[in-house]
Design a protein around this nucleic acid. Structure first.
Ligand SMILES: [Mn+2]
Ligand SMILES: [Mn+2]
Ligand SMILES: [Mn+2]
Ligand SMILES: [Mn+2]
Lengths: 221, 221
DNA sequence: AAATAAATTTAGACAAACCTAAAAAAAATT
DNA sequence: AATTTTTTTTAGGTTTGTCTAAATTTATTT
């Protein structure tokens, strides 16, 4: 009755989920890049996941998780984000240190453990990077947010999440004193390099690169 | 510099450690029984652990962990027991439910994670089963304790640990209201079946079987 | 419509971790 | 001391998950 998947299978499932969240579907090459493995390895696993009815896949085509596969993905995402929240809130880790550890903890799958942890943490709805945490039924809040590059001039908004967990990004944000919840207004956009000047928390003015702006999600306030 | 071991290697190392703690050394058959695998598989792994300098082993002989192997074992035991403590104290699990989960969590090996968890828990010195938790240097309290079967009549003592993590044992102890710290005096020993009558917490009288007495460790008070 | 480039799959290997059955060594009995 | 039993190892397989190199399919250009 109770299904059990290997670490490897779970990492594939989760990454397919993230890919199809951002582009609607997943492809062999993109998944290989995400998992830092090779396309041939991906094809092997796609066959296994299809055989287990977790994946909708035909050779040479793009692929998507089946409803069952998506249910499993949401469980993994739930565990990952709950542990990240735990590490930051209870163990006092920085938000740039928790992703790798959660990458391991997410594979300890025991329903009671996850649900008790959730309760212990007081049912947090967002992880330290601003991403929503699925509840025990896989439901989560969908934020309407936009990429900072698309935000209109002088529109009051705040950072709602970041589009990458890389410690390089998080280090840069720490340096610039930008975190989830920081108030942002775009004061000027420079067409030369598409960098922009921001006002942070209605006070400081900073300049950020296009690369940075393109991984910052904001919502209007 | 930083070594990394597979789940399987870690389970072998930890179980060799426990065997040599109780009998001074480990053997192929005993380890196979402990790991619920087959002797041939054990031999395979012994060669690998020897090649990695974690094990002192010659074919057909008993074996022991090298100092390095023991250091690693203590790290695994530390994580296992800290997580058990966390599960009972923070997530409100029963002491009979935590062993299996800790069996997984112990493999998430990140020094900062373990040390921060230790601090968060306030540096507990014993796990829920009364076993000592190694500190970050691998040091732990050695309790002088004896098996209940060897305790003299009317000697005031208390339960200090249990010699098995089986949920069957823990269920029985829960039923008899015996837990770590319970005061115990042996009032009578029956030679017919070597069962014994106990006084618990200076109040209740209960009868326990030899099998049960032989997995209860006590220390005098 | 051909030719070229890119994406994907297949073929064939390999390492890790397990297994069964058979052989060898060590220990216990007679 | 010889025989029997027990313990351990070896030989030879299997599964999972990975890889490289070659082949195939699909997409893009010319
Ligand atoms: Mn992971
Ligand atoms: Mn996150
Ligand atoms: Mn384990
Ligand atoms: Mn324990």
């Amino acid at each position: 009755m109770s299904s059990n998947f290997s670490h490897s299978e779970e990492n594939y499932i989760k990454n397919i989920y993230h890919l199809q969240q951002s582009t609607g579907f997943a492809t062999t090459n993109e998944l290989a890049a995400a998992l830092r493995s090779k396309p041939a390895s991906i094809t092997d696993m796609l066959k296994k996941l299809k055989a287990k009815k977790l994946l909708i896949y035909e050779p040479y085509k793009e692929f998507n998780l089946s409803p069952q596969g998506k249910r499993i993905a949401l469980g993994i995402v739930r565990r990952h984000r709950l542990w990240e929240y735990f590490l930051v809130e209870k163990l006092k880790f920085g938000w740039d240190e928790v992703h790798e550890i959660a990458e391991e903890l997410e594979h300890v799958s025991n329903k009671k453990l996850t649900d008790q942890l959730d309760q212990f943490l007081n049912y947090p709805r967002f992880d330290p990077h601003g991403d929503p945490i699925p509840d025990s039924n896989g439901k989560m809040i969908v934020q309407q947010q936009m990429i900072l590059t698309e935000l209109a001039l002088n529109a009051p908004s705040q950072v709602s999440s970041v589009g990458s967990q890389s410690s390089e990004l998080l280090e840069l944000l720490k340096h610039k004193n930008i975190t989830i919840g920081t108030r942002v207004e775009v004061k000027k956009k420079f067409s030369f390099d598409r960098s922009m000047e921001l006002k942070l928390n209605n006070q400081v003015a900073v300049n950020i690169s296009e690369q940075l702006a393109s991984v910052l999600f904001v919502k209007s306030v």
